[in-house]
Design a binder for these strands. Structure first.
Length: 303
DNA sequence: AAGTAGTCCAACCGCGGTACG
DNA sequence: GCGTACCGCGGTTGGACTACT
């Protein structure tokens, strides 16, 4: 895939016929000597001045991730691992922000540790590394309540499946990069893993509440925490999402069947715990977020 | 010993933001 | 305002290494 992508768009190193791949000790020595003496200044001019056949980007990366004198290196301590887990619960995959809290560690190092080790450890403890929530043992199988039949036709929601009562405090982000910023009413910033649902806007003419069979068979209440919407069918810019706590979200692929026979879902549908008027309140929130804090399902979740 | 699968991590890629002419 | 170059970030890849069969 990497090679395929390379063919589509050649990297700067490729275009300039520069060296790529692992750094030799000689190259390290040259870069280290140059930066120690002159500082890096403009990265694009570093390779030229240091006598390296590399692109500036590659030099920068090598310096930041390997040559910098303040790097700690070596294995992570248990304290560091725990701190990373805690920070990830708050910050998500913002590796550079996490790394800023761990002196001598790079974002790349932390990212690798997370992907190769910490995720696994959390799963072994029965914690979902994405949500930092306890994992329900039974494999959830999505089912949908389609509120089209209740007259809520103009909006699509994808709710979170609240799996435990251990959720941490709510995070409502402000992100100028988010598609949400196109909607002045909302501050929540969906991150990359959330974009799937936001971009998956095949159908926005239904009001859909996914839940799970395992949840439906238990007494777990599933608040409609995550809402994806499209204000205007013809304008994807007016699409976004909001959530009480995006870390609590298990995204469901919302794929609505217009010609559904919804009876087959009724055994799993939690009509009693999800009264339509609460969903209406969520819809109201989308247009007026000041009502957000008065919504009981949200209140209980952020406590 | 040889082959295969899994793990780890350095490095690369592509994108968005910013600065500057 | 526009185009370009550069920087920084997060996601992904590829290969070295290790464990297993």
């Amino acid at each position: 895939m990497g090679r395929q992508r390379q063919r589509q768009r050649q990297s700067c190193c490729y275009k300039q016929k520069l060296r790529r791949g692992l750094w030799s000790p000689e190259e390290d020595e040259k870069l280290l000597r140059h930066i120690t003496k002159y500082g890096h200044g403009c990265w694009s001019s570093v390779p030229k001045h240091a006598g390296l056949e590399r692109c500036g980007k590659s030099c920068r990366l090598r310096w930041i991730n390997y040559l910098r004198p303040d790097l700690k290196r070596g294995t992570f301590s248990a304290e560091e691992e725990n701190l990373i887990i805690e920070l990830h619960a708050v910050l998500g995959n913002r590796w550079s922000q996490i790394a800023a809290q761990l002196p001598g560690r790079t974002d790349n190092e932390i990212k690798n540790l997370w992907n190769s080790c910490l995720k696994k450890k959390l799963r072994q403890r029965g914690i979902d590394p994405l949500t930092h929530q306890l994992i329900i043992p039974a494999q959830p199988k999505p089912c949908f309540i389609n509120y089209q039949h209740h007259g809520y036709d103009s909006i699509t929601t994808a709710t979170a499946c609240a799996t435990t009562t251990t959720s941490t405090s709510a995070v409502v982000h402000q992100n100028k990069n988010s598609p949400c910023s196109s909607s002045p009413a909302l501050n929540y910033a969906p991150r990359s893993h959330e974009s799937a649902i936001i971009n998956n806007n095949n159908n926005y003419n239904n009001f859909v509440v996914p839940c799970t069979e395992s949840a439906a068979s238990s007494s777990i209440v599933i608040p409609p925490m995550q809402v994806a919407w499209q204000m205007d069918d013809n304008d994807p810019q007016l699409t976004g999402a909001c959530a009480a706590d995006y870390r609590d979200i298990q995204y469901q692929h919302v794929n609505v069947n217009h010609n559904h026979n919804h009876n087959h879902n009724h055994n799993h549908v939690m009509m009693g715990t999800q009264p339509p008027d609460e969903l209406i309140k969520w819809a109201e929130y989308l247009t007026n977020p000041t009502t957000f804090l008065t919504f009981p399902a949200f209140k209980t979740h952020i406590s």
